[in-house]
Nucleic acid binder design. Structure first.
Length: 478
RNA sequence: GGCCUGAUGGCGGAGUGGUUACGCACCGGACUGCAAAUCCGUGCACCCGGGUUCGAUUCCCGGUCAGGCCUCCA
């Protein structure tokens, strides 16, 4: 089985072949840490985390190097630091911690590297120097600018011929630019802003050069896969590519360019300029991380995604179904005679469904199709339970867990999933009521049994009578 | 103006040149004291108009609609 990925540069899905299967490199543009990140910022986090997992599955966990940078030099950070009267590191540190915590709650594995601009400044300055040395950049009035004329392929990634872009009236051309499309590599800091030393005078780096320098410093160029949001194709990735190639004497930059589609909210683009942002941080207080992760992966990663409450609700219900199968099978196995458990054996349908999940993911991360495989697996698990096939239940349960966890799902204990919102106090209360109800039911005292269920409903708890007793769960908030 | 996506049932959303996955929701039945879950079953979904074809939702052309990008927003 081979991994196929859609490459923005060639506009085609193609087989993925890393330069060195023992050292697969992935870089994704990360956040600017000046505030809590909104949910749209986490789409690439979840998408490329999934890719990270698939790559690890294919090449081995140690063979995949994943770098996701952090921009901690930025105007918005400066502003916030000035407002609070603290150093920028206080601001960036605070929101980086929150960002990492939210990413973890969404089931994202920590990247291998998380380089920061402030820690990569030497490499950035050096790369600018290399570009000047290659005549691909020029100093002007305290700035250093990239000379887009030096890169013949400029515009190729985004499919924008240079002349057309100049025609666009929105470009404001600074007088010191040789060409309107030239962009800043280094600029002077404004009074009061953080400053770093450079051969061209004190100042700070431009946005684009940061990523290129961090990739070079952390992974080394060229890399196998470069990822990010579709909105970064131009100018950010176009500029990265130009910088990387020109600084590196015509070498490749990235073999595959991958871009996730935009996340929209209520017909309005989810960006920091719009007021109605939904912070992942807040959403995680209302929904389990896995449900949000599921919602983010509900459509193909290259398609736009409409972010609605209904979407998350459907995601939660879909996951409930899987967790119920897990829960029921666990209960079945707990009650099964131990002698029957050693029989082992393979389960043909289960293995096929597992393979389907894997194949779907390897086909350019087709998550909706992979979800279908997960449900197929849970159906096999169900019928094994119905058929009292202990070995089949064990096998299918293991396959379901393995397939789901490859995608970052079913990592919770089913009990915790359904009763997650309950504290110990509530749990004790519920258990006591259920015990009372069990007695009433044994005496066929239905009015009393129903009264107790109503009492439980009042506690936002739903009871489910089973052959071996009752189970319960926290009801959905209506 | 330039470039580029997309249009599939009540909702979300894959896929395919020839019985329209999957999930959510709904409806009928089984099971259940009731309920939930589970199981069985039903639902005339592929934007419009041409073309290619024995046959198109799938390929080609045109149109309509929606959305994105065009210098620092993932």
């Amino acid at each position: 089985m081979t991994l196929n990925l859609y490459d923005t540069m060639s506009r085609a899905k193609r087989p993925f072949a890393p330069k060195d299967p023992g050292r697969v490199t992935l870089y994704v543009c990360g956040p600017t840490v000046y505030n809590y990140a909104h949910i749209g910022n986490f789409r690439p986090v979840v998408v490329f985390d999934l890719l990270f997992r698939v790559l690890r599955d294919l090449y081995g966990a140690d063979a995949v190097l994943y770098a996701a940078n952090v921009t901690d030099v930025d105007d918005k950070i400066n502003r916030k630091a000035a407002e609070e009267g603290v150093p920028i590191a206080t601001i960036s540190g605070r929101y980086l911690d929150a960002y990492n915590a939210d990413a973890a709650a969404l089931g994202a594995l920590p990247p291998t590297f998380q380089p920061r601009v402030t820690e990569t400044m030497d490499a950035i300055v050096k790369m600018i120097g290399d570009l000047v040395g290659q005549n691909a950049a020029y100093p002007a009035e305290g700035h250093v600018l990239f000379d887009t004329q030096a890169f013949a392929d400029y515009g190729k990634l985004s499919g924008r011929p240079m002349d057309e872009m100049i025609a666009g009236a929105r470009v404001e051309v600074a007088p010191y630019k040789r060409h309107p499309a030239d962009f800043v590599l280094w600029k002077p800091s404004k009074p009061g802003e953080p400053v770093w030393e450079s051969p061209w005078g004190p100042g700070r780096p431009g946005w684009h050069i940061e990523c290129t320098a961090m990739i070079e410093a952390v992974l080394g160029l060229p890399i196998d896969i470069h990822g990010g949001g579709i909105d970064l194709v131009f100018p950010h990735h176009e500029n990265e590519l130009a910088q990387g190639v020109c600084a590196g004497h015509g070498r490749d930059y990235a073999h595959v360019w991958m871009h996730n589609g935009f996340l929209n909210m209520s017909d309005e683009k989810m960006s920091k300029s719009v007021g109605n942002v939904a912070l992942a941080h807040d959403l995680l207080g209302e929904y389990p991380g896995e449900a949000i992760r599921w919602a983010l992966l509900a459509g193909h990663y290259r398609q736009p995604l409409e972010w609605t409450g209904e979407l998350i609700g459907q995601a939660k219900s879909a996951l409930d179904r899987l967790y119920r199968a897990l829960d029921d099978s666990g209960r079945f196995l707990a009650g099964a005679p131990t002698s029957a458990r050693a029989s082992g054996g393979e389960h043909r349908g289960g293995v096929m469904a597992y393979d389907a999940v894997q194949a779907a993911l390897q086909d350019d991360l087709n998550t909706p199709l992979a979800f279908a495989g997960l449900f197929q697996l849970s159906d096999h698990l169900r019928s094994a339970i119905m058929g009292k096939d202990v070995a089949g239940v064990e096998r299918c349960r293991a396959l379901l867990l393995e397939a789901a966890q490859l995608m970052g799902f079913l990592t919770a204990d089913p009990g915790a999933w359904f009763q997650g919102g309950a504290d110990d106090d509530l749990k004790a209360k519920v258990e006591a009521l259920i015990a009372e109800r069990l007695t009433a039911r044994a005496e066929k005292n239905w009015p009393e049994a129903d009264r107790i269920r109503d009492a439980l409903v009042a506690l936002n708890v739903e009871v489910m009578d089973g052959p071996t007793g009752a189970t319960w769960r926290i009801k959905e908030q209506a």
